[in-house]
């Protein structure tokens, strides 16, 4: 059983939560850019959060389901539809055999996630199915999807959500979906502050530079990708040139190269780096950044480590509640 790629979209890759345990060998962790939207999508079809999904960037693919499939789409709104019928997002949707799901270029957000019950069954490489294009690792042959690809999936087994099985039998539409939704936009568009905690080299920057960092509205350069976001808006200068010894960096590290334009390291970051690190984005706000488009603007807000970790734990509790409520709904 497989899902056929009729059109690949701008950049569509298989991603799970990342390739962990191998960073000490220099292997990039990678994985989804927006782990909130991706985990919601997995939760909506009753998957373990570690199952592989499709990460769909800016402009969507066209996919054909040869057999019935239970899928969910969360994250950016890329106006998905089946035929002339809008495809409901943020909830489990049981599609009929032969359904063609078409994404467009949306207005809201940057990355949509498509989860299918059982996950995409591409080979596991070093503990993960995530695609790392630069080294041609994981995913489907280590690359973005292209026309004619067939994504391996498990055959759909009815029973997880009996009401949808019945509804599809009775419905005239090409799919069946519940009325409820887990909410599919990761972040309200009005939220324009990205929380950070001070980075290891915060003290190497002058008071003035730190105020500039926190007081500037930065733009995301078009020269940004899954590896890093280059920011424009203010030049951050060190008090004196720092001789940095390379050490580990991570998702959300804000580093400052000699030209003074900060870079936020994203999912496909290298394992180590040698630039001074002024700040670290709070993990809870990484999904917000993942959904920002090139040229979008935002400002940083300094929080304490305690605030960042409490916000992180609150977010995890929220996800657990959403999972419980999905379970409650499907058993009705």
């Amino acid at each position: 059983m497989s899902v056929e790629v009729i059109r690949p979209g701008l950049l569509t890759t298989v991603q799970d939560l990342g390739r962990f345990g191998y960073q000490r060998f220099g292997v990039v962790a990678g994985g989804v850019m927006d782990n909130w939207a991706q985990r919601l999508a997995n939760a909506a079809v009753g998957n373990d959060e570690r199952e592989a999904t499709l990460e769909i960037t800016m402009q969507g693919p066209v996919l054909r389901f040869g057999e019935p499939a239970l899928v969910a789409v969360c994250g950016a709104d890329l106006a998905p539809r089946i035929g002339s019928v809008p495809f409901p997002q943020g909830r489990p949707v049981l599609v009929r055999a032969g359904a063609v799901l078409e994404f467009r270029a949306g207005e809201q957000g940057c990355r949509a996630y498509l989860a299918i019950r059982g996950g995409f069954r591409v080979p596991v490489v070093m503990g993960s199915r995530s695609t790392y294009i630069r080294a041609a690792l994981g995913g489907l042959e280590g690359r973005a999807l292209k026309k004619g690809d067939r994504l391996p999936v498990d055959a759909y087994a009815p029973g997880w959500y009996p009401e949808l099985d019945r509804a599809l039998d009775e419905a005239k539409t090409p799919f069946a979906a519940p009325r409820w939704s887990v909410g599919f936009t990761a972040v309200p568009a009005s939220a324009r502050r990205v929380r950070v905690v001070a980075g290891p080299q915060w003290d190497l920057f002058s008071q003035e530079t730190r105020e500039l960092f926190l007081g500037t509205e930065f733009g995301i350069s078009v020269n940004s990708d899954r590896m890093g976001y280059r920011l424009t808006g203010a030049m951050l200068k060190l008090r004196r040139p720092a001789e940095m010894i390379s050490e580990a960096v991570t998702f959300g590290t804000v580093q400052v190269p000699p030209d003074g334009n900060p870079i936020i390291l994203m999912a496909d970051r290298q394992t180590t780096g040698g630039y001074p690190k002024i700040a670290q984005v709070a993990a809870v706000d990484l999904p917000r950044l993942a959904q920002a488009r090139p040229l979008e603007r935002f400002a940083f807000e300094l929080v304490t480590l305690a605030e960042a970790q409490q916000a992180y734990l609150a977010r995890e509790r929220e996800l657990a509640k959403i999972r419980e409520s999905i379970d409650f709904q499907r058993r009705q």
């Binding site: 580990a248 991570t250 995890e316």
Partner: peptide, 20 residues
Amino acid sequence: VDVVPAFTSVAVHYRPEAFA
């Protein structure tokens, strides 16, 4: 989830909820 030694340091990447 990851332990990363470098020239003079070690990074320990972790999931905060596991230590809550």
